[in-house]
Design a protein around this nucleic acid. Structure first.
Lengths: 146, 146
DNA sequence: AAATAATTGCAAAAGTGTCGCAATTATCTA
DNA sequence: TAGATAATTGCGACACTTTTGCAATTATTT
């Protein structure tokens, strides 16, 4: 393992942490962009990486700010942070599960304005919005339950 | 157990559900206003209420719309719904843990406007914002940990 | 290439969430 | 208010999920 160009190697190196297979494998997986649950991750990495190491790598990434956990529904999933991947907020359709990316800048500035008014300096935030997308709202789409 | 005036008893009664100790105890705990994690709840109720019953009561409350699960950071916590308790959004100061309530109407309308633009109809949302309050931002306030 | 320091995989343990079922408790009825 | 009836609880057992100690392995340093 060498490649000191890619994102994660750089971060690890900068912190004096070893560049190891579990860490690279996790990063590559997350790099595909889709938020993954812990079990999706270690099933994907089965045989390659031990469960315990998956957890350790995930927690390391979170501590390093490389990744963070988000909630879809009410199980969390892991996703790379801004610096390594697109945006963070989206609508999730409760029926068809379509994900609609939100205008990040607008959200940020709204939060900032709000915070400023309360003389609060915001350092982090989580926003999740559930609802129905245009198609599903129009009815016609039957849902098993819910 | 009788008291048919308080919120939860009314709801239970209206649905023909029994008013039982686990349910009352959970409601009282949540009534204090602080969102609690499942384990906080059953540790608090240890000896009084069995783990399984805590889960059953929580799920019942959620089904009834009496409580709902929210995500703080990335573990979910349980909180009573609007009808039974104040508002849902606030700033939380990372140092002194002061909680600043936000202007709910403004938040709601922002979300709605945003959603409308994407032709998405929002039915629920969770927003959490971390940062520092005015005093702590100015420095001077030492924090034990965290 | 050897030394050393960080990390892994494994196995065991702790924690979470669910379920069936007999025992208990709340509510209803007379 | 007692007795019948139906709802609910607590218990024990599972099936995960997540964490930890530790010897073995792997990445870095010299």
């Amino acid at each position: 393992m060498s490649r000191s160009e890619d994102g994660i190697s750089q971060v690890l190196q900068a912190r004096g942490l070893n560049i190891t297979h579990p860490r690279i494998a996790l990063f590559k997986l997350l790099e595909e962009g889709k938020p993954l649950s812990v079990s999706e991750i270690y099933h994907e990495l089965a045989g390659e990486v031990d469960r315990a190491s998956v957890y350790r790598a995930i927690n390391l990434f979170v501590d390093l700010g490389v990744a963070h956990k988000i909630n879809l529904g009410w199980k969390y999933k892991i996703e790379l942070s801004d610096a390594f991947v697109e945006h963070h907020h989206h609508f999730t359709c409760a029926k068809c599960h379509k994900v609609i990316a939100l205008n990040e800048a607008e959200l940020e500035s709204f939060i900032d304005r709000l915070a400023r008014r309360y003389k609060f300096s915001a350092t982090a935030h989580q926003i999740e919005i559930q609802g129905l997308c245009e198609k599903c709202k129009k009815g016609r789409v039957k849902s098993g339950k819910n």
